[in-house]
Write a protein that binds this DNA or RNA. Structure first.
Lengths: 223, 223
DNA sequence: ATTATTAATGAGTCAACCTCATTTTAGGAG
DNA sequence: CTCCTAAAATGAGGTTGACTCATTAATAAT
């Protein structure tokens, strides 16, 4: 067997371990997960696990890192930068909500423990949320988004709402709910987008009415 | 020793165990926490723990339940129902953010595991978020809040944003930040509160048309 | 004062993570 | 094809920590 195929084989085995670990951690949580189960599902001996990952926590970290890495790629593919930034944000919200509902357990395992490899995890997530930041920054450049927006505040609202909503939905045994996305996007639209953007796509009577109210307020304050 | 003082003594011991457990769980997380440490800090034998709580998870559940119970009482005391509902909401946001930053570890331990006593925990939290719901419902009654608000959506935004912001702040070793509260309240104000001059709601195209006519009239008269 | 019941103890059990001496596999040289 | 060496894999056993239970102590009742 050549060196390259050997490397492929090792990487395949590593991927196999990660997949097995992801399943077991998702089903049983960190505590409930048994290293013996993971080894059995990956069809290797228990001791072999420790050649690839130094302990259980390290294995979980790898699973979590892969999840957020894949999520970043998926998010970048889910948005179309040629469309209006509000449409991009809506697409990101939909993708994010769907993904964290699907892999709810992994998300829950992301923030665990106090002082372990928190730095690495923070970088991973910082990289992920950059997709959001880029949408807003492009929106500002294009003149669609208000330039006085405080991005970290908008980010907290965006991801905070989606994560909390996902938890609510999962705990109620409900699945994806588009209303969560719509509501959030409406909210951010109203607070962070420039009013001119309403000209393009009036979606509902409520949108039109809200805009009227804002116009009247402006008129009133101008006196 | 009379029966009542005996009961008091037992309750005091139980409170002592809960306090010790809360400290150890907060410092070390669920995994890192040692039952022996908790027993030592409560100044009892390790076996005695199991007379009060059937296992480690049960002990954590008790700590978490006490936390959310206390939080509910604190939140009810933090708001003044005689003030405008927006002020009440702001007070609740401030109290909540401060509290979950202070006891960040306990909050993180609340959502753990998959299928254990999730039902009980859900009730606990449902009871807590009722404080929020009551503020909004009173606001609707008083005519301050739009009556077409979808409360669960507003709730997800409120608690989701605060929880995510708390995590961000703690991970950055920052403390309480009033801007988080202000930003959130502004957002909810803009989306869910009625504007002073038009308390009616968009019911039909006629309403919208009538308002447009009024605006045109105002604009004409100004030239 | 004696007995009965309840509470507390901590040494021992068991399960699960992790180690390491041993075995197996793989690739290259003769 | 055979031998050799280094890397990879194995799983029995060590260690740690949650949990049990026979024993002891404390409290209440008669």
């Amino acid at each position: 067997m050549s060196r390259s195929t050997q490397r492929q084989k090792i990487e395949a085995r590593e991927a196999c371990i990660l997949a097995a670990a992801g399943q077991v951690f998702s089903e049983a949580g960190f505590e409930g997960a048994r290293m013996a189960d993971i080894a059995r599902r990956a069809e290797i001996a228990e001791g072999t696990l420790y050649l690839y990952y130094k302990n259980k926590q390290d294995l979980l970290d790898a699973v979590v890192a892969k999840f957020w890495g894949d999520l970043t790629v998926g998010a970048e593919n889910a948005i179309d930068v040629t469309r209006p930034s509000l449409v991009q944000l809506s697409a990101l919200a939909k993708y994010h909500l769907q993904a964290i509902i699907d892999d709810f357990a992994i998300v829950g395992l992301t923030y665990r423990g106090t002082n372990n490899e928190a730095g690495q995890r923070r970088d991973q997530i910082r990289h992920y949320v950059r997709v959001f930041d880029q949408i807003l920054l492009r929106g500002i450049d294009r003149g669609e988004v208000r330039s006085d927006i405080v991005i970290w505040q908008a980010r907290d609202i965006f991801y905070g709402t989606l994560e909390f909503s996902a938890r609510t939905l999962v705990l109620r045994d409900a699945g994806f709910d588009q209303r969560v996305v719509t509501n959030l996007i409406d909210l951010m639209h109203a607070s962070y987008w420039k009013l001119e953007q309403y000209n393009n796509e009036p979606t509902s009577l409520d949108d039109v009415f809200a805009r009227l109210t804002r116009i009247e307020t402006k008129l009133k304050s101008r006196r």
